[in-house]
C-alpha cells in the first residue's frame, strides 16, 4: 500500500505558522514605514521566505521523493525563465502614447 506510506517527520506547526504570521505583520510594517526600492526588496525577501516555508514545511516538499521535488521546483524555474525571457522584449518596447505609430522601439 504505497499510498498509506507516511513520508513525514515531526514538525512544530504552531511555530511554523507563528513564523509566517510574524513575517506577514513585518511586511505590513515595512510597507507603512519604508519607501522606494529598499521597501520592495525587503517585502520581496520576506515573501520569498514565506513561499519557501509553505512549500517545504506545510506542503511537506522536503519529505517528498526526489521526483516530486523536481516537478515542483521545475515549475518555479519555468516562471523565472518566462520573466527573464520576456523582459527584454517588454522593457525595450514602448506603446506610442499618440496611438498613431503603433509600437515604438527603444534602442538598447
Amino acid at each position: 500500500m504505497a499510498e498509506e506510506k507516511d513520508y513525514h517527520g515531526k514538525q512544530n506547526y504552531v511555530m511554523l505558522l507563528g513564523v509566517i504570521a510574524v513575517l506577514v505583520i513585518a511586511m505590513v510594517g515595512i510597507a507603512s514605514t519604508m519607501t522606494g526600492s529598499s521597501k520592495v526588496l525587503a517585502i520581496s525577501a520576506l515573501a520569498a521566505i514565506q513561499f519557501y516555508v509553505v512549500l517545504n514545511n506545510l506542503m511537506h516538499l522536503k519529505y517528498e521523493p526526489a521526483l516530486i521535488t523536481l516537478v515542483a521546483y521545475l515549475s518555479v524555474v519555468f516562471i523565472v525563465i518566462l520573466i527573464f525571457g520576456v523582459a527584454p522584449d517588454t522593457l525595450l518596447v514602448n506603446l506610442d502614447p499618440s496611438g498613431q505609430n503603433g509600437l515604438v522601439f527603444i534602442e538598447p
Binding site: A2, E3, M59, Y63, P65, L67, I68, A72, S75
Partner: peptide, 23 residues
C-alpha cells in the same frame, strides 16, 4: 528524498503534485 524512480511515488501523490506544478 532518495527515491527517484516513478514506480516508488504513489500515483495519487504524484498526480496532486503535477496539478500543483501546473497551478
Amino acid at each position: 528524498m532518495s527515491d527517484v524512480t516513478i514506480e516508488r511515488v504513489p500515483k495519487g501523490r504524484l498526480g496532486v503534485w503535477l496539478l500543483i506544478a501546473g497551478e
